[in-house]
Design a protein around this nucleic acid. Structure first.
Length: 262
DNA sequence: CACTTCCTGCGC
DNA sequence: GCGCAGGAAGTG
């Protein structure tokens, strides 16, 4: 489920359910999670109380009073299912957190690609993330400097979390459509005016995400019409009427309009 | 740079 | 069956 707005949304739900609560049990349900979430890694978490839940890029960080931090990345399909320990286990439960007050937080992830890590006190190290796109401190000039030396196409670059953090495949496509830029354009060749337009467009599409969901829900796209190009191959462009095209860049689908994205 | 891999499910 | 899926690390 995750790009920046979706992760922000998930972190808010997790925060509301767990800040102040004390962990009584952590269990890796799926084999892929047992590899990293070993009993040795999870045992020190038991008895810890959640003091904060924050987000950085697409990561959620759960800070405990013991100084440990639990890092969660949902990858493609992860989400939280929050309830009580008495509930039936949710479908696709991969990791289960139980709290002394009876709260249950289950990581549900049909594809089991989510990644969880436990950081010991003082050992929190995060990847080299670029600026947060909704942070007012992120300027067009910073963005331009970051993409100027790059010769490859702009669209895959928007997915590079070191350039700007939090964008994924949908918002990258939407931002390029909004800025009327061809996703194949060499990043370094984009004019200052157009790069500034793209910088603005990134903020626009992220803020437009209705309650942080452009994505598929119950097999149907739930976006209240906010999604202009993603997943719309063959449909007429809502701006110019030409059919939306689909190409593959760096192994990912890119949807774009050859009529008005130049 | 692009391609493969980690997984499972869904729609065609 | 096959191709596709919102991510990103790892490899050539």
């Amino acid at each position: 489920m995750p790009e920046l707005p979706e992760v922000e949304n998930a972190a808010a739900r997790l925060r509301a359910a767990t800040v102040g609560a004390t962990l009584s049990r952590v269990r890796a349900v799926h084999p892929s999670q047992k590899r990293t979430l070993t009993p040795t890694a999870t045992r020190p978490l038991i008895g810890g109380t959640v003091v904060a839940v924050t987000r950085r890029a697409k990561l959620q960080l759960v800070a405990l009073d013991s100084g440990h931090t639990i890092e969660i990345h949902f990858r493609m399909n992860g989400d939280w299912d929050i309830g009580t320990v008495d509930d039936e286990p949710p479908k696709h439960e991969r990791v289960r957190f139980e709290f002394t007050d009876g709260t249950r937080v289950s990581l549900v992830d049909s594809r089991a690609l989510s990644v969880l890590k436990v950081h010991k006190p003082g050992a929190l190290a995060l990847p080299d993330f670029g600026p947060e796109p909704l942070d007012a401190a992120w300027t067009a000039d910073q963005f331009i400097s970051a993409i100027k030396p790059k010769r490859g196409p702009i669209k895959p670059l928007l997915l590079d979390q070191r350039i700007v953090s939090g964008l994924g495949n949908i918002y990258a496509a939407e931002a390029l459509w909004e800025a009327r830029i061809d996703p194949r354009t060499a990043a370094g060749s984009i004019s200052k005016v157009r790069a500034t337009r793209l910088h603005t467009a990134i903020g626009t599409v992220l803020r437009r995400a209705p309650a942080g969901r452009y994505y598929l829900e119950g097999g149907k796209i739930s976006d209240d019409g906010a999604r202009r190009v993603y997943g719309r191959a063959g449909e007429p462009c809502v701006r110019c009427g030409k059919p939306i095209k689909r190409i593959v860049q760096a192994g990912r689908s890119t949807f774009w309009c050859s009529g008005c994205q130049t």
